[in-house]
Amino acid sequence: MSTPVQPSAADGLPGQRTTSDVQLPVDLRRVILAVPGVTEVFPSRPLWQRLPARAAALITSDEPQDQDLPLVEKRSDGGPTEVSVRIGVSAGKSGAPGLSGVPGTPGTLGTPDVARAVAAAVRNHFSPEQVVARVSVVRIAGDFLTGG
């Protein structure tokens, strides 16, 4: 199990729980969003979502909202830092630019691949420090649903 670096900040912004040798989660968020197939970074906790109209604004917004920052936790037993990330993934067109957009069509980046790529990006971001990545896909959105 793990506990927040600053337990007293449990009700505050998860993103503020950082240690001196850990990059700011706001940078991490940018790194995660840069992984192909990732459409959203969700707040670590509590889990919530806006209705679709607002969700679209979140995706396109350049400025991360405070609660959207990934959670960086340090294990209480002195083990490696754990980084928890909750993401939304595209099932369709925007998942892999330039590739076929039909779901299930070869060429679309699969969700497990996206999750693994995010884990790798997290590890790379904190390198050389060893971290453990916890990646949870909480939304797989199909662009093919409404056609825009």
Binding site: P80, P103, R116, V135, V138, R139, I140, F144
Partner: peptide, 27 residues
């Protein structure tokens, strides 16, 4: 979900798979 590094823990939520199934059926 399988992870490249055994220490990592990768998952997808049941809710996200529901949404995927709905969107395919809706299409």
């Amino acid at each position: 979900l399988r992870s490249d590094d055994p220490a990592d823990r990768l998952t997808e939520t049941e809710g996200s798979v529901f949404a995927l199934i709905r969107s395919v059926a809706d299409a």
